[in-house]
Every structure is written in structure tokens, then in C-alpha cells.
Design a protein around this nucleic acid. Structure first.
Lengths: 174, 174
DNA sequence: CGTGAAATCGTGGGCGC
DNA sequence: GCGCCCACGATTTCACG
């Protein structure tokens, strides 16, 4: 890790994400409204020091932004569903991507398996879900869809900073 | 809706979420790091006024919290997958819910369809994914799983405040 | 990375509509 | 009831050692 040359000569040096960074990220992923002072004493640093790290992590793109986590049900969208879309040919067309313009659509992933696209949607009612599905079906490249309605949500959070090391090990004895 | 009596006599009155609230929520869902002053001029209100509304929305639970949105790939977890779990009997057992302790697990939903549980996971490698699946299979109530690996993500955001009214209407002519 | 200072912001009370 | 003005305390954020 001595060679800081070559690529990645952006505004910030190619510094590694160390344990302190991960602790900071862990806190911010759960609650980004803490002050830098409190964050500092949580990780054993002064406020300006954490501030500089956070600024660097933002510039590096590790922190993509800080957002308010809203409650879909209380906003009038109590129905959460995952829609699997099977397309003709390769499904990554502009028309399908334009579904992102709808505020009901929260995620769009290209996926393996017999489905090409996985879309996470949150809507006001089963009627609204039907309306959304009809829009999807209107697209010419859509061959079929399969919808899984979430009956209850037990966990829903943003990406966590921690990694479970044990998952990478000792898979040989199954 | 004149009757403000009975239950819901919490610290905050059962005020409706009006258009201004939705504008505020829309801003905060995209970027919660704006100052109240800027938020105020975005929605045509003074800083203390927005502050009070935000306080109310938090107390009502509409704003569940403000969190940092981290980039999974840059954190060493480039592999996103959805695992559908079919269980014996009703799958909502304590053992399955304890998967929430793993930082790799981001969402757990009970779902309709031929699957009982939908789990969203983000892991470091295919080996780690295998390790996670093996943990799931170790649970006695698990009958089968089906995994969809996300090849690329085109959209991933938190619940939005806006609602598309058109989705609720005129579904009769299909 | 810590210290100190300056600018900005959050936040409660009081008034007016 | 609801929002604006004002003021104080806390926080962010900069320059320096």
C-alpha cells in the first residue's frame, strides 16, 4: 500500500477505508442526525477529525447521500410488492428504465434467473398496483410479469458498513 | 373527519399531511442534509415553520429517521441478491427473523406467491452468498430457496412522498 | 489529528393573522 | 391554529500548530 500512483488521482487520495471509517459509517447508516461531536466520542476522535473523514467518504462516493427514511404506509402507500419482469431479448431498454420516473417505483435491478428485471414498488392500493402492472404490460418488450406482494415487512434498512467474515470461510464441509 | 377525539391523542394532533408536507418530505427523501432555511424557501415557508412541520412529521412516524445511504460496492459488498425462501408451515419463526442480525441482510418480507419470505442481501462475494444460503438452509423450517442475483442496479431509493394519481383511475378499458 | 475561533444553523418563545 | 420574527445556544467548519 505504498504505491499511491497511477489511476485514482482524483481530488482525494486513494486512502483505504479503515476500521474507524467503518465505525463512522456504521453509526451514520443507522442515524445520520448525530452531531460530529457525539460521533467523535463514539469512535474516539475529535469533531473536526470525523468531519474530515466524512467529507472524504462522501467525495469517494462511499456515502452516497443522507436521506430521510419515510414510512410508506403513513404516506398512503401501504402496499409493497416485487414485480419480476420477463422480457423479449435483453430487457434493459429505455422504456423500461423510464419506470424510474414513477415515485411508486423504488428499485430496478437486472437479474439472473428466469426473470430479467426485478422491480420494487410501493403503491396506494391493489387498484394502483393493477394500474402499474398495466403500464408495464403496455411496454412492447414485456413478455410476462410475476408479482410478489409483501404481507409484512420485518426488516428494511440501507446498506450496512459491517461485513460478516465468517460467511467467507469454511464452506467446504457441507 | 371532524371528529378528532378518541384515540390518537398523542403529543401531536391528528393533522392531515397536506401538499406542503409532501413537498417537504419530497425534499428530505432526496437530501436530508439541507438546512431548514433552504428547505423553507423551497416550499415557501420560514425556517421555524418547516422546523415545526418536520418535528410533527417525525413524531407522527412519517419520517422514520434520517440515515446515510452507503454504496455497497465501495464497501466491499458488490453482490446484491434476492432470496426467496419457501418454508414448512408459516415461515415467520424466530429463527428466520434472527437473520436480521447479519449486516448482509437488508430486508425481510413475508410475501404472497409460492414463496413465503423474500430476503434482500448484499454480500462480498459469491462465496459469501453461498455461506449465507447455507445458514438459511440450516434452519429446520426451510424447505427451499430460490436466488436472484442482481447484475446491475438502475434505481435504488427510499420511499418517495409523491403519489401518481393516474394509477388509481381508468383501469376499466384494458 | 487536535485546538480554537468564526460563521452558520437549530430551536424555543412571543406576536400577529 | 399556524406561521413569522427574533435571539440564544449549539454545531459546523475553517486556519493553524
Amino acid at each position: 500500500m505504498q504505491k499511491t500512483d497511477s489511476l485514482q488521482k482524483r481530488a482525494f487520495p486513494p486512502r483505504e477505508i479503515d476500521a474507524t471509517d467503518r465505525k463512522i459509517l456504521g453509526e451514520l447508516a443507522r442515524d445520520a442526525s448525530v452531531s460530529f461531536a457525539r460521533l467523535g466520542e463514539a469512535v474516539g476522535l475529535s469533531a473536526p477529525a470525523v468531519h474530515e473523514r466524512v467529507k472524504r467518504l462522501k467525495a469517494q462516493g462511499v456515502i452516497r447521500g443522507t436521506v430521510a427514511h419515510l414510512d410508506g404506509a403513513r404516506l398512503g402507500k401501504p402496499l409493497l410488492a416485487f414485480v419480476h419482469v420477463t422480457t423479449k431479448g435483453w430487457g434493459k431498454t429505455r422504456a423500461l428504465m423510464s419506470l424510474a420516473d414513477l415515485p411508486e417505483v423504488e428499485e430496478i435491478h437486472s437479474a439472473t434467473g428466469d426473470t430479467c428485471l426485478i422491480i420494487k414498488v410501493r403503491v396506494a392500493s391493489s387498484l394502483a398496483l393493477e394500474g402499474l402492472l398495466s403500464r408495464i404490460y403496455d411496454l412492447p418488450e414485456v413478455r410476462a410479469t410475476q408479482t410478489y406482494v409483501a404481507l409484512s415487512t420485518h426488516l428494511e434498512r440501507s446498506p450496512q458498513a459491517e461485513v460478516t467474515q465468517a460467511l467467507e470461510e469454511a464452506e467446504t464441509l457441507r
